[in-house]
Nucleic acid binder design. Structure first.
Lengths: 185, 185
DNA sequence: ACGGAAATGTTGGATATCCAACACATCGGG
DNA sequence: CCCGATGTGTTGGATATCCAACATTTCCGT
């Protein structure tokens, strides 16, 4: 209900900046991308960049979040339950996202990426848990969501490390029983 | 030397509008494209459209000119002579342009398109003639350029009409001797 | 042929963006 | 070491763009 539509110029400019950044990321390493590069490509003034973002790390953060959200929104977790299907879907969304990033060059920013993934996962988990256990206190659900997000992210790291070419689906399925027994009714 | 750089916001907005229009043109007929459609796609306000263009016909005009210029600029006629090679190059540029337009739907606006092509050809011819005949009076060169532009455009119409699958190069080559004898020293 | 809906243009005041200039940090070469 | 060159952030005044509202025209269904 709290309307207050954001000015379309803001939406347009942010999109131009993010698109340019993502485009440049596929051509250069992150550390070689300068703010002038981005603003030139986006056809906006350098000062305007600072109107929207603190610095280039802020942009990296928000751009990756945006991309991850696009990856996740195709899946519609809004009103779904936390079950085997959604867990598999979430897990493959993460591994897809990381694979798509590996073609770009963000070496040295794994921590940022990890935090972004965990943050988004936590929000999704919390929504699902809230829906499934309306009687529980918020604090408990929050903590569960936190632990699940760390856990699923950790699993994705383990999947990448193992690299014995088992599919993400198969990989996460082996862990699901333990998760389910922990969170099941 | 007469600087007076145009504001980058203007360049950006015009580009957004033109790109959106060209994009929409490949999906709808011109007559079904509304100004709201364009401005929505371009993420700009409808009032801003009128800041840059008189109406949608003005946009059609300028957008086509832009596209044609892109077609022509790859060829670099700036300091070239008016000889067989450049004539062939110009002719194929025109036929390419018209072919690319035929996939879009501008039925009923052939006159506009024709005028745009002739206008641009005339400018190019005049520059070349000026370079090649510095001693001549401007009026004579202007008129020659006008006649050449009409002539070459007419040839392109004839080429489309005949459609006996002879290449544009071959087609125009048959006419070049007459042009050359007319304009040669 | 009528009436409502949608598209076209226009306007004045609000706001995002631009510019030029500045101070500061970083870096690589002589 | 120092210097010029390059990148980062910040600022105040100028300007392109937005918005909401309006009048007018075009279109389409009944």
């Amino acid at each position: 209900m709290t309307e207050a539509k954001t000015d379309p110029r803001i939406l347009r400019t942010r999109k131009l900046i993010m698109d340019s950044f993502i485009d440049l990321s596929s051509k250069k390493e992150f550390k070689d991308i300068t703010i002038k590069d981005i603003t030139t490509e986006a056809m906006i003034n350098r000062a305007t960049f600072y109107y929207h973002f603190m610095d280039i790390y802020d942009l990296l953060d928000k751009a990756l979040t945006e991309v991850l959200l696009v990856n996740l929104n195709g899946k519609e977790y809004e009103n779904s339950e936390l079950n085997e299907e959604t867990l598999i879907s979430l897990f493959t969304a993460i591994t897809d996202f990381q694979t798509s990033l590996s073609t770009r060059c963000h070496r040295g920013y794994e921590d940022t990426i990890a935090r972004i993934i965990r943050d988004q996962l936590e929000v999704i988990f919390f929504r699902m848990l809230e829906l499934q256990h309306p009687e529980e206190v918020e604090e408990g659900l929050k903590l569960s969501a936190t632990m699940l997000s760390w856990g699923l992210y950790g699993a994705s790291m383990e999947w990448r490390r193992s690299s014995d070419s088992v599919s993400p689906e198969e990989f996460i399925k082996t862990a699901i029983p333990y998760i389910q027994n922990g969170i099941g009714n």
